[in-house]
Amino acid sequence: MPDLQTPILDHIVILVSHESLLGISKQVDGQFTLAPGGNHADGLTTNKLILLPDGVYLEFIAFFDNIDPEKRRSHRWGNEQENTIIDWAFTLRSEEDFSAVQQRFKKADTEASYTDPIAGGRTKPDGTVLKWAICVPQQPHGKIVPGSLPFWCLDRTPRANRVPCEVEPQLTQHPNGVQGISSVSVHVPEGEASRFKGAYDAIFGGPWNYQVPSGSAAGTRSVSLSGGENSVRLVFRGLKQGKVELLPGLVFEIEGQ
Rank of each mutant, 00 (worst) to 15 (best):
residue 229 E to C: 15
residue 229 E to S: 14
residue 98 F to C: 01
residue 136 V to C: 00
residue 209 N to C: 07
residue 37 G to E: 09
residue 5 Q to L: 13
residue 234 L to K: 03
residue 161 N to Y: 15
residue 49 L to T: 01
residue 153 C to N: 09
residue 252 F to T: 01
residue 5 Q to C: 02
residue 138 Q to H: 09
residue 75 H to S: 00
residue 21 L to F: 14
residue 2 P to S: 10
residue 195 R to S: 11
residue 166 E to D: 15
residue 48 K to D: 05
residue 237 R to E: 13
residue 78 G to S: 07
residue 192 E to N: 11
residue 236 F to K: 04
residue 92 L to W: 04
residue 9 L to T: 02
residue 19 E to F: 13
residue 115 T to V: 01
residue 5 Q to F: 08
residue 137 P to H: 09
residue 176 N to W: 14
residue 141 H to P: 05
residue 129 V to G: 02
residue 81 Q to T: 08
residue 112 A to E: 14
residue 20 S to M: 14
residue 213 P to V: 03
residue 185 S to Y: 11
residue 37 G to T: 09
residue 85 I to P: 00
residue 98 F to Q: 06
residue 197 K to G: 03
residue 199 A to G: 12
residue 257 Q to G: 03
residue 204 F to H: 00
residue 223 V to H: 03
residue 135 C to M: 09
residue 246 L to T: 01
residue 3 D to Y: 09
residue 132 W to P: 01
residue 103 Q to W: 15
residue 14 I to K: 05
residue 84 T to A: 03
residue 80 E to D: 10
residue 39 N to D: 14
residue 108 A to N: 15
residue 157 T to R: 07
residue 144 I to D: 07
residue 132 W to K: 08
residue 249 G to D: 05
residue 192 E to I: 07
residue 37 G to Q: 06
residue 193 A to K: 14
residue 17 S to P: 07
residue 114 Y to W: 12
residue 16 V to Q: 04
